[in-house]
């Protein structure tokens, strides 16, 4: 068990942890869930062989772990609120957005981008993380997301447009509030 963990840790941990932080927008939760990911991977390791797609497999599990967690959160929120009609904005309400220190230390563009990503649909955000932050190919992203390659291309294009719109809008709002227009 330890040798599997050691190898996976060396090869993928940094990337895996970062994926969970950006997906969940919460470092503490990511620290908890990364354990779940390793447990699942270790327990089902013998079911999977094929080094070429190991990373894809690992991220697919990580994504499912994170989705499970978010669904549980939604369910708890429903129970607390006592209503079954509040689903529309749940994507935005999983966590209050706490900017990771690493983002806070960057210039304004990174913070704006982080905020803009938070406003995208959950699965669209996941795709953008996979494609541009983790460098997965279209094919690999499709495998992780369980989508066709065509859908990956379409959603990727659409999300980049959405990001641009959000970023432009936030800039306009900023200019208006600063009286620079």
């Amino acid at each position: 068990m330890e040798h599997i963990f050691n190898r996976l840790y060396v090869d993928y941990h940094q990337s895996l942890f970062q994926f969970l932080v950006y997906m969940l927008r919460d470092r503490d939760t990511a620290e908890e869930l990364v354990q779940d990911v390793y447990i699942k991977v270790i327990n089902s390791y013998d079911k999977f062989k094929g080094d070429s797609s190991e990373k894809t497999w690992l991220f697919s599990i990580a994504r499912n772990v994170a989705i499970d967690y978010m669904r549980k959160q939604k369910r708890q929120r429903k129970t607390v609120v006592g209503s079954f009609d509040i689903e529309e904005r749940e994507n935005q309400l999983i966590h209050p957005d706490k900017l990771p220190d690493e983002i806070l230390e960057q210039n304004e563009s990174f913070k704006q981008m982080y905020d803009a990503l938070s406003q995208c649909k959950e699965d669209h955000r996941q795709l953008i993380l996979l494609r541009y932050i983790h460098g997965f190919s279209i094919k690999e992203s499709a495998a992780i997301m369980g989508w066709s390659e065509g859908k990956v291309k379409t959603v990727q294009h659409r999300t980049l447009k959405t990001l641009k719109t959000i970023l432009d809008d936030s800039r306009k709002e900023e200019e208006l509030s600063n009286g620079t227009v």
Binding site: M113, I133, L160
Partner: peptide
């Protein structure tokens, strides 16, 4: 903002270390 700049910023997103 344009597509290239958005992609570049995303690619340059800082690494987040596990504590």
């Amino acid at each position: 903002w344009n597509e290239e700049k958005i992609i570049q910023i995303l690619r340059d997103f800082p690494a987040i270390e596990d504590r």
